[in-house]
Write a protein that binds this DNA or RNA. Structure first.
Length: 283
DNA sequence: ATGGGGGCCTGCCGGC
DNA sequence: TGCCGGCAGGCCCCCA
């Protein structure tokens, strides 16, 4: 569910609560999410200081004083919630765990971070911080879309010769890491490229043009997430989800927002996923 | 190697 | 009110 901007927003919201703070107590309430939780996870977290909170693609990485790194993936329905004493104005009791609250992390300062995931497509793992990038879930990831390695030449080269639809190519985490169904729809809309165009059929200029558009769409979403965090300071709650208006995603049947276009947003299914697009201005 | 489809889970929503 | 199908923003794995 959460794509790169949502995960980055979660990271920023978690930072003041976790970074530099000691985990006083951790608890797992079931043995597995998508996969089994790592052995003795609660014990390996308890007593450790969180040295740094990082993000790689849609993964959160918490480096611990033990030399291990906690990896968290939210899957489709995973949520992180903060409750406790420091965030917000008032001290109050920790709430009773709710349905699908699978992992509880209590910080020494009194805050609790709760991992809730109804569908359990999420994942957690622990690994040595040294060499964490070669973890099986991270090793094959492509470049960060907001990083320098994601260049116009790079993307054009990766799309060249590919027969797969450009939609599938941009969802391929080995080509670029962090885009999901929503932001790919938004990117292709702004680029004026139909989701079912073959990736290899784009001109070099079209492929190159995707890079700044991807950066722009993600940066705007992260900015919107930052705004939501400022509001979030008011109360306990869920991190990373924010009101964000999409131009095509979920807008089937609505008029195209492009001035003078006059088209109607349509939906097609590609590889079992919905693609929203404007048949008039995306070619 | 590449591309497509199935499967993992639960919840929600609309239609009958 | 209840049941059922369809849908959901991810990712691994298998197969042709």
């Amino acid at each position: 569910m959460p794509e790169l901007p949502e995960v980055e927003t979660v990271r920023r919201g978690l930072e003041p609560v976790m970074a530099g703070q000691v985990i006083a107590h951790a608890e797992t309430r079931r043995p597995d999410l998508r996969w089994p939780l790592p052995q003795r996870m609660a014990e390996r977290l308890t007593g450790q200081r969180v040295e740094r909170l990082r993000r790689r693609s849609k993964y959160l990485l918490a480096d611990l004083s033990s030399g291990e790194t906690l990896l968290v993936h939210l899957g489709m329905s995973g949520r992180l919630l903060i409750s406790g004493a420091v965030i917000g104005q008032f001290h109050h009791d920790l709430p009773a765990p709710q349905k699908h609250d699978h992992v509880l992390i209590d910080m020494a300062g009194g805050n609790r971070v709760t991992f809730n995931d109804a569908r359990r497509f999420g994942a957690m793992d622990l690994m040595a911080t040294a060499g964490a990038e070669s973890h099986p879930l991270l090793a094959a990831l492509g470049p960060e879309p907001l990083g320098n390695a994601f260049s116009e030449d790079y993307l054009a080269a990766r799309l060249r010769g590919r027969n797969t639809p450009v939609k599938s190519a941009l969802l391929d985490q080995q080509i670029v890491a962090g885009l999901g169904n929503i932001y790919v729809c938004e990117v292709l809309y702004r680029a004026g490229i139909a989701p079912d165009r073959r990736a290899g059929a784009l001109t070099a200029d079209q492929a190159s043009a995707l890079v700044p558009i991807i950066r722009e769409v993600l940066a705007e979403a992260i900015e919107a997430g930052g705004s939501s965090l400022r509001d979030y300071r008011q109360a306990d709650g869920e991190l990373g989800y924010f009101q964000h208006s999409f131009r095509v995603y979920g807008r089937e049947g609505e008029p195209c927002a492009t001035p003078g276009c006059g088209g109607t947003i349509a939906r097609m299914v590609q590889s079992g996923r919905s693609s929203f697009y404007c048949p008039a201005c995306q070619r």
